Every structure is written in C-alpha cells, then in structure tokens.
Amino acid sequence: MQAMDKHAKPCGWTFVSLRPQGQHAALRVALAHSGACTLGLSPWRLQRRPDAAGAGALRTALQASAVIFTSPAAVAAAASFGDAFLNAPERPWLAVGDGTLRALRAHGIEHAIAPSRMDSEGLLALPVLADVRGKTIGLVTAPGGRGLIAADLQARGARLLRADVYRRVPLRLPARALARLSRSPRPWVLAVSSGEALERAWAQLPPAWRARWQAGMAVVVASERLALQARALGLATVRVAAGPTAAQLAAAAVALHADRTQHR
C-alpha cells in the first residue's frame, strides 16, 4: 500500500483517507498543492459479485418504479453484468451523490438524477420519492451501509427490491500503516464519508491509538450525521464538508488545517 503521496511537497501535515483499498487517488489529486501527505488507511476493499444470483437480483431491481444506486462502485458492478444493466427499462434512476450520477451518465444513463444535498437524507427528500406507498423501489448497493435509505422507504410503505451487486471485504488495519502515521507530520486530518468505514477502523484501533486520535486527530465529514458519529467517539475537532466528493472533503480539510494553524 502506498501510504504517502511522494508528489505532494512540501509535506507539512497529514491527510488520512478511509476510502476502500485502491480508491485514494482522487483525494491525493485534490490535495496535490495543499502541502499535505495523504495516507490511505482502508478498512475494506470492494469486490464485485458476478454470479447468477446477483444478475437475477439486479434484473428484478431494475424493473422497479424507481431505482437507487448508492455509490459509483454500485454502478460499476451493475454495469459489469452487461445486458441486465444496459437493456433495463427506462425508469427514474436515482444517485445518492454527484460521483454516482457521473458514473451512471458515463454509461449512457442520461435520465439519472441526484439530490443537491449528496447524502441519504438528500436522496430521500427527492420529489420522486415523496409518495412511495405500495410502489416498488430498486436498491442497487452492497450489504451494509446506507441502512437509512432502506429503513425509511420501507417505513413509508415501499416494497424494496434489493440487488447487492458488490460487497465490502473487511481488511485489517496494518500495523505498518499506523507506524507510518505515527511518523507522519502533524496536524493529522481524517476524512470520513462513510459511517461504516469509521466504525470498522475505530474498532481495530488499540486503546492507545484511540486516545491519540481523540487528542490529536481533526476530522472532516460528509454530513451532520457523520459529525455526530465522530463526536460520539470522542473526536472533538470536527468540520462538516459541503459534500462527500474528494474535492469537497479536501477543501474542508485545507480550511480546517489553515484555521488550526492560524490559531496556534
């Protein structure tokens, strides 16, 4: 695992990414001129599910009155099934955020829409989901994560057609990655766009490392809900970014770093 971005010089502070293994590049690019080193600390990797059961579940989900895609990874995995994705009937296809929307449009799905507030709450507030009682809603996703969407839609009376087209394979946090972090320049800023990723990473931290994060790790999060989760873990310095994209998280991290440096 490449822990530090050797192209980011001078390296005066450290940005920690919890994104899946191999998916830190966008954050490194967004921070290329910020003076930050980027350290990837992935609690999982993503694995597509290219089996017949997955294809069948996807075909069923794509017949629903509206179809929700929860991430760019969900779009990529669904597209890998070929005809099940490409020949689906035209329905309202909904993306949780801008990255997912771009992924859908890259596959020719021009009728896809996304909320201006790029999180589960923003998606659930879309007019197309205002009255779902008795309707079928497709959910193209992975096991775990974004449970709010499924729970809310079912509580409103929708019948959910779920297609788990990929899965998150848990990874151990390597001791060498934490050792690299201990040698990395402070301040440290952690980016959180997934509550489940934060939970998995936190659960693996030894008590001494939890104390170090509580004492010295600032956090940028993609939503107010994630801010509450981070603060509940004792992470006191938390800033809410404008959204979950790499550019938005990077901008919030740079602003947070600047504020902390100014008030030293």
Rank of each mutant, 00 (worst) to 15 (best):
T136M: 03
S71M: 14
I149K: 01
F81H: 15
H111Y: 01
P143I: 04
P92K: 00
G138K: 01
R91L: 06
A84L: 04
G99F: 01
A78G: 10
A158R: 02
H107C: 14
P92F: 01
L161H: 00
L101G: 07
G134F: 05
L101Q: 06
G145Y: 00
G97K: 04
V75I: 07
L86H: 11
L104R: 06
A76Y: 04
A84Y: 03
H107K: 14
A155C: 06
L153A: 01
L104N: 06
A95C: 11
A150G: 09
E121M: 04
A73P: 11
L123M: 15
T141C: 14
G134E: 08
W93G: 00
P170D: 05
H111E: 12
R91M: 03
H107A: 12
P115Y: 00
L126N: 12
L86R: 12
E90K: 10
A114T: 13
V75L: 09
V96Q: 03
G82R: 08
L101P: 12
F85S: 04
L86V: 00
D119S: 07
A78M: 08
E90D: 12
I137L: 13
A76D: 14
R162Y: 00
S71D: 14
F85K: 02
P127W: 07
N87K: 13
I109Q: 13
R91G: 09
E121I: 08
W93P: 01
D152W: 00
V165Y: 10
D152L: 00
L126E: 11
A73Y: 04
R167S: 13
L171M: 14
T100E: 07
R172H: 11
A103L: 07
R133I: 13
A84E: 13
G144R: 06
G99E: 09
L160A: 05
P89V: 07
G99I: 05
E90V: 13
A125F: 04
R172S: 14
L126C: 13
T136W: 04
V96M: 10
N87H: 11
E110W: 10
G82L: 11
I113E: 13
R117Y: 02
A78E: 05
E121V: 12
L101I: 10
P92V: 00
R133M: 09
R117V: 15
A163M: 03
V75G: 08
D119Q: 08
A76R: 15
I109C: 15
A158N: 02
R162I: 13
A77M: 12
A103C: 08
A79I: 03
Q154L: 02
A158I: 02
A130R: 15
A79K: 03
L148C: 01
K135R: 15
T100H: 02
P170L: 03
E110V: 10
R156Y: 08
A95P: 10
L129R: 07
D83I: 07
A73T: 06
R105M: 12
G122T: 10
T100G: 07
M118L: 12
A151V: 04
F85E: 09
A84I: 06
I109A: 11
D119W: 03
L124S: 09
A78D: 06
Y166P: 02
D152E: 14
G157I: 02
G99C: 08
T70H: 02
